[in-house]
């Protein structure tokens, strides 16, 4: 669970159209930098004040992370001009593993190793399922789809304890061992890859289905007539056409997994702990050592912020993905 959530609820067609229209107007105004827009000084001032309020806490953290520890503890960051000082030793300390069992540098690598596969697995599996829900008629299709949809609101807290024991102890039915656990132990990413994949599926299926089901009927029919089976139709027609939706969901899934704490606390033991888990550890053990906390927090934030600023347009589109066609 992380901060970013696209609209993942069923929306009626009227609202869908409204949001799509608004999004288009928005993109148009961004492209053309319209000068004929009615601007008001009052509104601009109010917006700037709120924007400053919203940004100041992050700015304080960023400035503090570059100040020497003794200055951090004796003066507020807003006095940077009267108490100047600059250092990168905070970053060296926290990346080198001061205060934690796993160094933040190692945790950063862990986060990458967890996030990339855990973003790709659910996308492939979900697009397969979304295709079946959209283009293969079968009995009970609506019921099953609604069931999958309902699963996404179920708190993952419901699933944590039994899933963990399934991973570590396997499954026994009436004393007969059906399979033993993954047994991959503390240094494998296996558990956390699978856990993230499963937890992402309901939302991924729902969002991709919204998109895939709106591909024009004629295209699918034409492929059928040309002799393509479902496998080829999926791989050569649907996947390329659904790329915008898949890409925007990939961004979200990347951010969720990168920013996740709960799944990491339960499924990533010891040496494979991602950056959020290690940060949590520093907050617990060294909660007053601001030179470690501020630098550590910024290291954790840098990747999502780059993704966010580089892909902002896809991000906003993806956010409205439940409502608009990519």
């Amino acid at each position: 669970m992380s901060a970013v959530t696209p609209i993942d609820l069923p929306i009626d067609t009227k609202t869908k159209k409204q949001l799509a229209r608004g999004e288009k107007a928005l993109e148009r105004s961004l492209v053309r930098n319209t000068k004929n827009k009615l601007t008001s000084k009052g509104a601009t001032t109010a917006a700037i004040i709120i924007a400053i309020l919203w940004t100041t806490p992050t700015l304080g953290l960023l400035i503090t992370s570059f100040r020497p520890p003794e200055l951090i503890n004796t003066s507020g960051w807003w006095t940077i001009f009267t108490n100047p000082g600059f250092t990168i030793s905070n970053y060296q300390a926290v990346l080198g593993g001061e205060a934690t069992t796993v160094s933040l540098g190692q945790a950063f690598i862990n986060s990458i190793a967890i996030t990339i596969p855990a973003s790709i697995f659910p996308l492939v599996i979900a697009s397969l399922a979304a295709y079946a829900f959209a283009w293969i008629p079968f009995k009970g299709r609506n019921i099953l789809f609604i069931g999958v949809f309902a699963l996404q609101v179920v708190p993952i807290q419901m699933a944590l304890v039994p899933l963990l024991s399934l991973f570590s102890r396997g499954l026994k039915i009436g004393g007969v061992e059906v399979f033993d656990g993954l047994g991959a132990g503390g240094n494998s990413y296996g558990q956390i890859w699978i856990a993230h994949t499963i937890f992402a599926l309901p939302l991924a299926i729902f969002l991709l289905h919204n998109f895939i089901s709106e591909i024009p009927h004629e295209l699918i029919e034409a492929a059928r007539v040309d002799g393509a089976g479902h496998g080829q139709t999926f791989f050569r027609i649907v996947l390329p056409l659904a790329m915008p939706a898949i890409a925007s969901f990939a961004i979200f899934q990347f951010l969720w997994v990168w920013n996740d704490l709960l799944v990491a606390l339960v499924f990533a033991d010891g040496a494979v702990g991602p950056i959020t888990k290690v940060l949590r550890e520093i907050t617990g053990n060294r909660g007053q050592d601001w030179y470690l906390l501020t630098a550590g927090a910024f290291v954790a934030m840098i990747v999502p912020l780059i993704v966010f600023f580089a892909l902002q347009r896809f991000f906003v589109r993806g956010l409205l993905a439940g409502s608009t066609k990519g």
Binding site: S40, R280, P304
Partner: peptide, 28 residues
């Protein structure tokens, strides 16, 4: 109705990219 809509929006939208752990440390 403001000038510089894109930048102003990005600033308020930015916290969504930050993890809850990061946000907690910022506010702590």
């Amino acid at each position: 109705k403001a000038r510089g809509e894109k930048l102003l929006k990005a600033l308020v939208f930015m916290p969504m990219a930050i993890s809850f752990v990061g946000a907690s440390i910022i506010w702590k």
